[in-house]
Amino acid sequence: MSETRQRWRLVFRRDEPAMYLSHLDAIHSWERALRRGSIPMAMSEGFNPRPKLVFAAPLQLGMLAEHELADLFLAERLTAPDLRDRLAACLPLGYVATDLFDVWAGEPALAPQLAAADYRLILLGAIPEQVAGAVERLLAAVSLPRERQREARTIKYDLRPLVMGLRAASPEASSAAGAWTGAGVASASWPGAVAGNAAAAGALPPGDSLPPEEPATLLWMRLRHSQDGGTGRVEEVVAALAQEIGLSLAWTGGEEQARPAAMPTEPGSGAGTVEIVRPVRERLWLARELV
């Protein structure tokens, strides 16, 4: 019921310690953090007032992130250095605020402004050349009819228009630029710079290495993320790729997450499955940033 005096747009990343928070857990943890930091939040109306903190897009459980967006509505004005210091001292472990913008309090909400999201991940269990072929075929397809479960309902939809860019590379490739196959985005941030080594790419935690006996592929994709035009899901794209080469995606992600259709119910249900590790949402894009 407190009035908004200031609206800050926060850019933040999510690292490993906070990787397994669901969206609801994240909201809860942030609310506690904002209280710890004595950040003078404006409160929502209603019987059960809550601090006005709005994430641009839910980040699913198990996903790391490098450029997420949230709006904080304050009941008292703070200077940027003051807010930055308070956030640094209070945010849940694994969340790091990387940038702050003082935005007009009357600006439209964040979520409808979103247009796309970039992701990268390591795919285990499929031969990189086969994945590369599947990427080419997927991109060449005019449509990709798929089904997915939403609670009890099965939704039929076309995945193809949601995939704006998709590339694959082998972690062993010596020259990244040549190794990446796929298309859709002129200069993909990660693939361009990386020398094909997953650890060097920051894709793996320090000290870890990929299992030598399991084939691994680096995948990068840009998916539409739009309230009107639909939102692509990483595991749907991976499931489509796996299907293309006669494999299926292992069920990962726990019960909190929507389960893509045509996915084995039990993990480890035999050979022929691929597995996603270290998925990262690299960046959320607002429509005006992509023009």
């Binding site: 310690p17 849940p92 597995e275």
Partner: peptide, 17 residues
């Protein structure tokens, strides 16, 4: 890889405030 296969994996990852 283990936690991607289980319910409520946040119970096993630590990192609490």
């Amino acid at each position: 890889r283990l936690l991607r296969r289980v319910r409520r994996p946040g119970r096993y990852s630590g990192g609490e405030w």
